[in-house]
Simulated scan of single mutants.
Amino acid sequence: MATNPTVSDLRKVSEVTHGEITAAVDAVLADLKTEAYPLAKGWVLDLVEMVRTNEQVTIALKSDQAQWKRGRVRAAILLAHPVKG
Rank of each mutant, 00 (worst) to 15 (best):
V16S: 04
G71T: 07
E15C: 10
Q65V: 13
E35T: 15
N54T: 15
A60P: 01
N4S: 13
L47A: 12
G42E: 11
E15W: 06
I77W: 01
V48E: 12
V28G: 01
L10S: 08
T53F: 05
Q56N: 05
S14L: 08
S8H: 15
A2E: 09
A75Q: 09
V25Q: 01
D9Q: 06
V25F: 01
K62S: 10
T3G: 08
L10E: 02
Q56P: 00
L10A: 07
L78R: 08
R52P: 00
I21W: 03
L45F: 09
N54A: 10
L78A: 06
A27W: 00
A40D: 12
A27M: 02
R11P: 01
T34S: 09
E20H: 03
V13K: 08
A30D: 14
L45M: 07
Q65D: 15
R72Y: 05
N54F: 01
A66R: 14
V25I: 06
A2H: 10
Q65T: 06
G42Q: 05
R74L: 13
A27C: 09
K62W: 04
W68L: 15
H18A: 14
N4I: 07
P38M: 02
A66T: 09
L29G: 00
K41P: 01
K62P: 00
I59G: 00
E20G: 11
S8D: 15
R72P: 01
N4V: 10
V7S: 09
E20V: 01
Q56M: 04
V51M: 05
V25N: 01
A24E: 01
T53A: 13
D64T: 13
V13N: 08
K84A: 04
S8I: 10
A60L: 02
I59Q: 11
D64F: 13
R52D: 14
A60Q: 01
A24C: 02
E35P: 05
R72T: 12
D46C: 11
K84Y: 14
V13W: 04
V28Y: 00
A36V: 03
H18E: 15
L79M: 10
D26K: 06
A24Y: 01
V83F: 06
S14T: 12
T34K: 14
K69I: 01
R11S: 06
A2N: 13
A75L: 04
L45V: 07
A66P: 00
D31M: 00
N54H: 10
A40G: 02
V48I: 04
E20Q: 15
V7Y: 04
L47F: 07
A30K: 12
G71D: 13
A24T: 00
A80T: 05
E15N: 09
S8L: 15
G85V: 13
E15T: 05
K69A: 03
T3Q: 07
A66N: 08
A2F: 08
T3E: 11
G71W: 00
R11N: 08
Q56F: 02
P82Q: 10
G85L: 07
L10D: 03
A24I: 02
G19H: 01
K62D: 11
A75D: 10
A66L: 14
